[in-house]
Amino acid sequence: MNAIRFYLGRYGRPLLYLAWFIALAGLLPGGAYEAFLRPEFGILLGAAVVVLLGFLAVDMGRPPTPPKPIFGETIRVLILALPLAYLSVGRGVALDSGAFETRWTGPAGATAAGAPQAAPAAPETTAREADLVGLCWNSDAYEGQTVAVEGMLRHEPDVAARYGGNGWLLYRFVISCCAADAQPAAVMLTGEMATNWTDDAWVRATGRFTLRPDQPRPVPILELGALDPMQKPRNPYLY
């Protein structure tokens, strides 16, 4: 027991810092951390790696600590290392309709928020490239235009019951800082759709974008012209 206490006290923290250092350094190349955080956080993670290296260095050269209760210290080390196990699981995951279910608060377009950018009028024959952030949060700039937008499908029969439409939404998660604060930006789809679409299928939708007045917020609607399947993008989030 004394040996465990000695080794835990002497090497527990350095090993913990080493594990965290390896995990964070492993997330940096290729932007793997973007599964969790917005890209700008790479600098902060880099700084964290440097500080962890500093902690590791000073803890390796630290004189032996006084003995601590073995149970408490073991639990503390296990808790501090716990996120490492979850980081490996969450690394290849993206938020999907499960998260949509808990985070969506209803269809919403924003027209009165700030001063929307006036958009050049696009000819009806050419679809203007758009993203769901623009359509939902700067709706005025796209109203009445034919747009092409990418996102995931989500079937919401309640929406169809209240607003009409075909019951499908086109959505994508928008991250402010990290996946924990990501919220869905969604437009309601109207028009004919095949019956074999499934939740979370990635599609490129083309159609006419309109805003339906509603309380408390206007509802963004895409009158479908075309709906094509597409590959999941490397980064599924918008910022």
């Binding site: 969790f36 955080l37 996120p83 979850y86 980081l87 969450g90 995951v93 800082c177 990290c178 924990a180």
Partner: peptide, 11 residues
């Protein structure tokens, strides 16, 4: 859960 937990901790 892993994604959200990891995000909060990493942030």
């Amino acid at each position: 859960f892993a994604l959200v937990f990891g995000s909060i901790v990493l942030e």
